[in-house]
Structures are given as structure tokens and as C-alpha cells.
Design a binder for these strands. Structure first.
Lengths: 140, 140
DNA sequence: GACTGTTCAATGATATGTCATATAATTTTA
DNA sequence: TAAAATTATATGACATATCATTGAACAGTC
């Protein structure tokens, strides 16, 4: 009965994909979580964003971003320093180690996505997206 | 750019729905989380299941179920006692307070689902399900 | 009946999610 | 310019997710 509720299918699919993706990263011997990688990636592309804005890009809240950034710093993938212009803010810079890690993981993520979408046409994916956006809009 | 990745849309949609659903429960003045309600519901329908089996029904692992059950007991929605037949197992019974809560929340959940799916035809939902199941299968 | 392997539940450690609040710095307003 | 409102980050408290381990109880085998 629960199986017929589309939201269960949604939950299950996203959990399955996350586990699949994380497993492939672990198997490659890289010590990072998907979420950490996502945040690191956003910082690389947009180093001036604040925690709130980073969060908006990856659908996480500010507190989660703060903690993930802390871990990235601990792992020496990221360096932070107080901004000179606005001392509430923080300047961030990916370390060489961080750059290497992004390079190492990117193809794995790309492969994950491709494998997960095997057999789905562009059109099907677009329909999927539209359906999800509709649900998303209904919940606002 | 991230917006074009279907898995972001998936993440965002499921998070939005969860927040929407939880808000409506909170607004009704009921002190329970969606996850706790789901587990309570499964126990009501199938009181003899073990933690592992409960987890399979709601896509959670055994450790999560153990902790959620603990909270349900603390909230006096559930009573546990050692099973006589197999003393590793636990007999569970929903309390009257738990029954009342399930009754109170069920229509809210139903309404949530209906609202979230507003404007999606049966056919669209079925296509959505099929696409998700494909992805799910690809990740196994 | 003792040994071995399996099952069930509990829990430690760590990461993330959510809400609320704290603190410091900046901007706006009076 | 002093006070008030806003902003950026950090963090406390609690719930959930995941992995690993422990301990107790059971099942099968000899």
C-alpha cells in the first residue's frame, strides 16, 4: 500500500541514488561525502558567495553549510580568512589538495549520473523534471 | 548549471514536500515528526515486525528505526515489552494516545499528498513513478 | 549438552537537517 | 552620530542517516 504513494517512490529513489553515488566515491578511495563535494564545487565556481547563498545552490540551510565548510577546512581542502572589506564575511579559497580532489571526483559523479539515467530518453527526463517542478510549486 | 541536473530537482522536490508536510502537521498543533508518524503507522498495521522489517517499509535502516521507536515510547505513543516466545524480540503496542494521534494526522497527510499532486494527472504520476523506478533499478 | 553461527535490538561515532539563538559587524534610521 | 535594524557566521539542541560493533538470545550441528 505504501508502495503506491508516489512520495515513497521519490524517497526511495533519491536515497538509492545517494547511496549508489557515495559508494562509488568510497570505492575510488576518496575521503569525502557527496554533500561536502557539492559545497566544495560551488565554492570553487563562486568563491565569493556567503553561506546562505551557497546553501541556496545546493538546497541546504546556512547551518548545514557552516558545518560542512568546517569539515572541508579540517580536511585541508579549503582555506578561510576574514574578509578585509566586510569583516563579518569570510574569504574562501580551495587548496591545491581541494582542486585535486574535485578533479578526481568529477568524472565519478558524471559517470554516476549517466549510469543512473541509463535507458531514460531526454524527453522522459524532461517530463520527469516538469512533474517534479509542478509538485515543487504546489508545496510552496 | 546545477539546475539542469535532474538529481538536484529530485532533491529539491523531496525536501520541499517534506518541509511542506511537516509544517502542516506542526500548524495543526501535533507534536510528531513525519518520520515518527510513518513508523508508528507501520507498527499499527503490522505490530509483529522487527526493526529491520519496519525499516524496509519506510526506507530507513535498523539503527534509525531503533531511535525513532525510542522517541515514540518516550512520547507514550507506543509500549514495548519483551516477547515471551523469542526474548530477543520486542512486543509493541500502540497506546490510545498513539491511536488518537494517528487518527489526527492521517487526514493531514492525505491532504498534503493531494495538494502536492494538484494538477498532475494519473497518467503523469504513473510516468513519474516509472521514471523513478528506472533510476532506482539503475542504481542497484 | 557444548560449540558455532545467526538474528535482534541497542548504541557509539560521525555527518547532515532544522530551528533557534548568539555574537559581531555593518547599514539604516531617527 | 547614536540607536535600531539587518546581515554573516557560529553554535546549541534535537532528529535523522549511516556504518560498525556489542551483547543477548536463539538455531543448527556435532
Amino acid at each position: 500500500m505504501l508502495n503506491r504513494v508516489i512520495f515513497y517512490t521519490l524517497e526511495r529513489t533519491i536515497k538509492r541514488y545517494r547511496q549508489f553515488a557515495q559508494n562509488n566515491i568510497d570505492r575510488a578511495g576518496v575521503d569525502i561525502t557527496i554533500d561536502q563535494w557539492l559545497v566544495l564545487n560551488v565554492i570553487q565556481e563562486s568563491p565569493t558567495l556567503g553561506q546562505q547563498e551557497i546553501g541556496e545552490r545546493v538546497f541546504k540551510d546556512q547551518a548545514s553549510i557552516a558545518r560542512i565548510i568546517n569539515l572541508l577546512v579540517k580536511k585541508e581542502l579549503l582555506i578561510q580568512s576574514a574578509s578585509q572589506q566586510d569583516r563579518r564575511r569570510v574569504d574562501r579559497q580551495i587548496t591545491p589538495k581541494g582542486e585535486q580532489l574535485i578533479e578526481a571526483v568529477s568524472p565519478i559523479i558524471a559517470q554516476n549520473r549517466q549510469t543512473a539515467l541509463d535507458g531514460l530518453s531526454e524527453e522522459t527526463i524532461e517530463q520527469l523534471r516538469q512533474a517534479l517542478l509542478l509538485i515543487d510549486g504546489n508545496c510552496q
